[in-house]
């Protein structure tokens, strides 16, 4: 049932408290979808990566083929920031006199640690990958970091779209006034200011990207957020928090995966634990995954787990 839901959505997030098995669940979903013939790109944004352990091979910032139709990426915020900064540094080097280059590098080095820098760089990569849905792959599955990070990350497009909108409004006004001032110049109309055009183009590009990602994330037909929890008090509480915060940001929970449920003896206890979630989201599709003897590892185990979906 869960797999049917997922196969209709291009952008799939898995989130929940640390240690509930997000990585395992998302990797298993990815493998199952790939097995059905869908091209899947699985991405981990958790700084404590363990896709590599799970697949028993090296996974890095560039796509690695795991099985046919399935590639995996471990995003490294640090490396993304470096790439972002070196691009800007290249610009600055062009416009600054040669003597000032060391100073620019120092400035950028300081900017590296600015708050939000890592998230922004990460977001940039996600936006790139999300733009590839339908072209490079059918599904982008994101194994997100623990709740706090994820919420910041998902709130960023909304916040930054507002920011770019403000900046664009400023530019529109300034450009309009400049244009009117130019209309009143004696020497006839002069050509547009190339710098103003460049600023506007940069802002528009940024806005397109951010707003595009925001629209994608909040579109329930194209994206789905799957909360992963275990039948214990703390993870359930955190799932509640996560779901509510996402709801406030315009993202509805699409499904719930309850992981590591202990045999029939614990069934009643499990139901009791999940009451707060039932009360909050009575119609939320739910999958129950039974506790395995050992934590699944390797493709075969992951596919086996997916049969419970």
């Amino acid at each position: 049932m869960l797999l049917n839901l997922l196969s209709g959505r291009g952008l799939i997030f898995f989130g929940g408290k640390g240690g509930v098995g997000k990585t395992t669940v998302s990797a298993s979903a990815a493998a199952a979808l790939a097995r059905r013939g869908r091209r899947v790109c699985l991405v981990s944004t958790d700084p404590a990566h363990n896709l590599g352990h799970l697949f028993e091979r090296e996974v890095g910032p560039h796509p690695v083929a795991i099985i046919p139709n399935l590639t995996a990426i471990e995003l490294d915020p640090e490396a993304s920031v470096t790439a972002h900064l070196s691009e800007i540094g290249g610009f600055l080097h062009q416009v600054m006199p040669r003597g000032g280059r060391a100073e620019i590098d120092r400035h950028l080095e300081r900017a590296r640690h600015a708050p939000g820098m890592a998230e922004a760089a990460l977001l940039d990569r996600i936006a790139d990958l999300a733009a590839g849905i339908g072209r490079d792959h059918d599904h982008l599955i994101l194994d997100t970091a623990p709740t706090g990070h994820t919420l910041t990350l998902l709130a960023l497009p909304e916040m930054m779209t507002a920011w770019t909108d403000g900046m664009i409004a400023n530019r529109a006004e300034a450009d309009r006034f400049s244009a009117r001032a130019r209309d009143l110049a004696t020497g006839g109309a002069s050509s547009n200011d190339p710098r103003a055009d460049a600023i506007r183009a940069t802002l528009m590009r940024r806005r397109m990207r951010l707003a595009g990602l925001r629209d994608h994330i909040t579109d329930a037909d194209r994206a789905v957020f799957v909360a992963v929890t275990t039948p214990e008090r703390m993870p359930v509480q955190e799932t509640l928090t996560l779901g509510r915060a996402l709801g406030a940001g315009g993202i509805a929970l699409g499904a719930l995966v309850v992981n590591r449920v202990h045999g029939h003896a614990g069934q009643e206890r499990t139901d009791e634990r999940l009451v707060p979630l039932d009360r909050e989201w009575p119609n939320l599709p739910r999958s129950i995954l039974m506790q395995r003897e050992a934590e699944p590892s390797g493709i075969a185990a992951l596919e086996e787990l997916a049969q419970d979906f």
Binding site: F91, A114, G116, M160, T202
Partner: peptide, 9 residues
């Protein structure tokens, strides 16, 4: 900050 940086040039 991350986005203003690219406007600096």
């Amino acid at each position: 900050a991350p986005y203003t940086l690219e406007l600096m040039p």
